[in-house]
Design a protein around this nucleic acid. Structure first.
Length: 819
DNA sequence: CCGCTAACTTAGCAAACCAGCT
DNA sequence: AGCTGGTTTGCTAAGTTAGCGG
């Protein structure tokens, strides 16, 4: 299998250093003074205002946009304004509660909408009584009576009458209003901790129990078929499924798998007494073959069969796909409980390959409204526990056995709950705009602080802000060795005077962060040198005095809710908005999209969002190279035709490029190309001949003879011979085309060539860049929507269906909206 | 201050789907 | 009309952050 080039390869011997947090040196004020290249002066003013470093990489980095947001005097005013506003809002919200529940009533007519096939047709609940009479859609019978009973009104939201907007108008817009536009109400969700007042759902969907393999399908051990217990067979099947993948070649994966496999075998030994002791003697391929056949069968099903199967699946999943939150039907995200499998940790995860156990209802905690009916656990089982906590947003949770981490069932990205969080995330990072000047000023000054703690904190802040690094929590022995800002080790940072730094480390998901010779603030350079100093070794942390909590506490001092991750969102969005300014005002939608994608790409590079280069990428590029040559070939022909009819002075004066010869277009290639084209034409002629004859036959007329075809083919041959001859002579036949026509054609050809080139190089440049992640998580969708409106590009061109749903809250943004 | 828990966002990969081509 | 390659969606791992208890 292809090795993963993107991820840093982990070698056996690169053991990670464990929590090497020894204190090096004391934290006294004077500790920094004995460092040779440390300036002894107090912080210099000019350092604070110094120019931001140029980003050395190809990406236009936040530094480019700094001036726009960085502030001078207006800043303080604006932040004061913001604060005032905040206060006002809070005041309002204290009375009215900006929580979902309160702001909702206005568009409640949604409940009148004909229901979809789900258990949760919206039922006008508690506060909907007013209009429910007119509206109420007959709800499906599978909603139990218990669910029907009037839910409580939470105390907090009882103060507001249901059908009113905050300003008190009663809105009743009729039945057609489908969506509850929470974003049209004031201010997202308030700072109350309650996220909902009523919540009903049907629990979670469990994967089917294991179905044993057909009797004849068995794994082999030491060449002999083994009669496995069902329990062991299931695990063997998990391994069979990864055969041929990178995992199957991974030592850790195999070791962990086999350990867990043996443990299952101990509890459920093979029925034939086989002792499975040696992984090398295991042969799972018979199981794999069976799985492959099953897959083929599935693929071979007719369209109808597939559709039918899907309908059946949907039918049983239906009760779990939606819930009722504050009386609104909302989509649930991951309602399917994760099936058992082999743990596929990323990078060099020490636990990869371990058996992830099947989740039983007894392990699950259900979270649901107080007055809602508690969903039935599967027959014969019980939920682990049930709680009614409306300060959290999950419907169910369980603890996973590999890392002991909690898993949750949440609502889908398009839900109000998620939408509100999303919007407030962007509002928060947008707010940073007003504080960023202060923050930068502060940490830039602190870069020279005499206290090591402060200086490290400032340097870390610099990296988080300028390089978009993640905070970088400490990680455990039993996790992949990846780092972020605060957990950087000396070995990850190389210094080259006067002020160039190379970063090379594995970040989240073991994606390599590699940037060579980044020009940093000279003071940052000096600091890094100090932090790396003896007696620290390569495995020791750069920032030995601080950690993420320290850094975040520092950030929070500037602005409510400010933490390291906000910088990524802020810098991503502001960069995107800035880059979009280069969109051509005139030009086709395709050209505008190119600008959009380029901006998107730069953000992705900023955030180091990578992906594996697809296996077919090289082939695709080769193909494109060929098509490019074909275009050049045509251009060459046009150019030579034009040369024959052109009156030199004018045409070439207007279009000097028309004289340029095509690069990289060899005679050999052209010979082959012409042969190729000829062959294709021959094929076409043959097919056409067949078709024509078929038609004649059907019309009872007499068919053409093979000789007729031969004649046609002869003509084709002749034609191409001439073409080749003329081409070699450099004098293609001009025919009746005049200079004007040829000039136009030539111009068109040049445009096409250029577009093609741009496209191709674009494609190559993004081959290992993942655009999706930033689009989904970092770029404020309102920037995108505003851009689409301003440049008349349909949003559907840039947001796929799920994103349109996820970002409904941003769709009404006006063209002149600014992040 | 530290380590741990809980809840949430962010992330890349692979399966599924779809559109553009022959 | 089936294939192919690119895009979209689903999945779940891997982060961040705040809060808590010692």
């Amino acid at each position: 299998m292809t090795a993963n080039l993107k991820r840093g390869a982990s070698t056996e011997n690169d053991k990670k250093p464990k929590k090497a947090k020894q204190n090096i040196g004391s934290d006294s004020e004077s500790e920094l003074s004995d460092v040779p290249d440390e300036p002894q002066q107090p912080p210099q003013v000019e350092q604070v205002t110094q120019v931001k470093q140029e980003s050395p990489s190809n990406l236009k980095h936040a530094s480019d946009v700094t001036p726009k947001v960085e502030n001078t005097n207006g800043l303080e005013n604006s932040s004061d304004l913001v604060n005032l506003k905040e206060i006002e809002n809070n005041k309002v919200s204290n009375d009215q509660d900006l929580n979902t529940s309160t702001v909702s009533p206005k568009k409640s007519s949604k409940s009148n909408k004909p229901s979809e096939d789900s258990d949760f047709d919206e039922k006008p609940k508690a506060r909907s009584s007013r209009r429910s009479a007119s509206a109420k859609k007959e709800k499906k019978e599978n909603v139990t009576d218990d669910e029907k009973k009037t839910p409580k009104k939470t105390p907090k939201n009882s103060s507001q009458p249901p059908n009113q907007t905050p300003n008190g108008d009663v809105k009743d817009e009729g039945d057609d209003e489908d969506d509850y536009k929470w974003w049209a109400e004031q201010g997202g969700f308030g700072d109350g901790t309650e996220r909902w007042s009523t919540l009903e759902h049907n629990g979670v969907f469990f994967p089917p129990e294991y179905i044993p393999l057909p009797k004849q399908v068995k794994m082999k051990y030491d060449g002999k078929l083994v009669e496995l217990s069902n329990e062991a067979e299931e695990v063997a099947g998990f391994y069979a499924a990864v055969l041929g993948s990178d995992h199957a070649a991974d030592e850790t994966f195999n070791k962990n798998f086999f350990q867990d496999f043996q443990s299952v075998l101990r509890d459920h030994p093979p029925l034939d007494g086989t002792k499975i002791k040696d992984f090398e003697k295991c042969d799972f391929s018979p199981i794999r073959e069976h799985l492959d056949i099953e897959k083929e069968k599935k693929k071979a099903m007719t369209k109808d069969e597939k559709k039918h199967a899907k309908e059946q699946r949907d039918e049983i999943e239906n009760p779990f796909t939606h819930c009722l939150l504050d009386g609104r039907k909302e989509k649930v995200g991951n309602f399917r409980i994760e099936p058992p499998s082999l743990f596929r940790g990323r990078g060099a995860h020490p636990k990869k390959g371990k058996l992830k156990l099947r989740i039983r209802p007894e392990q699950i905690t259900i979270n649901i409204g107080k007055d809602a009916k508690i969903p039935d656990a599967p027959p014969g089982t019980n939920w682990g526990s049930v709680q009614h906590d409306n300060t959290v947003t999950w419907l169910a949770t369980w603890k996973e056995n590999i890392n002991g981490a909690y898993k949750y069932v949440y609502l889908a990205p398009g839900s109000t709950l998620k939408g509100q969080s999303d919007m407030s995330k962007f509002e928060k990072s947008r707010e940073l705009k007003h504080y960023i000047g202060n923050v930068r000023e502060s940490y830039e000054a602190d870069l020279q602080n005499k206290v090591m703690f402060d200086r490290q904190r400032a340097t870390a802040a610099y990296l988080v802000d300028r390089l978009a690094l993640r905070a970088g929590n400490e990680k455990g022995e039993d996790e992949a060795d990846t780092v972020g800002c605060c957990s950087l080790r000396c070995e990850h940072v190389m210094l080259r005077p006067p002020n160039l730094v190379t970063f090379d480390f594995l970040g989240k998901d073991s994606v390599r962060f590699y940037q060579e010779d980044i020009k940093v603030d000279p003071q940052v350079f000096k600091n890094l040198r100090i932090f790396k100093k003896e007696p620290k070794g390569p495995q020791d942390p750069i920032f030995d005095r601080i950690h993420t909590t320290v850094l975040n506490n520092y950030f929070r001092g500037f602005m409510k809710g400010l933490s390291a991750k906000v910088f990524r969102t802020y810098n991503a969005s502001i960069t995107f908005q800035e880059e979009l300014k280069q969109t051509p005002n005139e030009g086709t939608v395709a050209e505008k999209l190119l600008s959009f994608n380029r901006a998107n790409r730069n953000v992705a590079i900023l955030c180091n969002h990578q992906k594996n280069v697809s296996k077919s990428h090289d082939a695709t590029m080769d193909k494109m190279g060929d098509r490019l040559k074909a275009l050049k070939y045509q251009r060459r022909k046009l150019r030579q035709m034009l040369a024959q009819v052109a009156d030199d002075k004018k045409v070439y004066k207007d279009h000097p490029s028309f004289k340029d010869e095509e690069s990289d277009l060899e005679d050999e290639w052209m010979d082959a190309h012409e042969e190729n084209e000829r062959d294709k034409e021959v094929e076409r002629q043959k097919k056409k001949f067949e078709r024509d004859n078929e038609k004649l036959r059907n019309e009872d007329q007499k068919e053409m003879k093979p000789e007729d075809l031969g004649e046609r083919l002869q003509e084709v041959e002749e034609k191409w011979k001439t073409v080749t001859k003329e081409r070699r002579a450099g004098k293609p036949d001009v025919g009746k085309k005049n200079q004007t026509q040829l000039t136009t054609a030539m111009q068109k050809m040049e445009d096409r060539l250029e577009a093609f080139r741009v496209n191709a190089s674009n494609k190559d440049e993004v081959k290992d860049v993942s655009l999706g992640t930033s689009k989904i998580n970092y770029i404020d969708p309102r920037i995108t929507v505003a851009w689409c409106k301003a440049y008349e590009v349909p949003v559907e061109k840039v947001f796929a269906k799920t994103l349109l749903t996820k970002f409904t809250w941003a769709m009404e943004t006006s063209p002149d909206w600014k992040f």
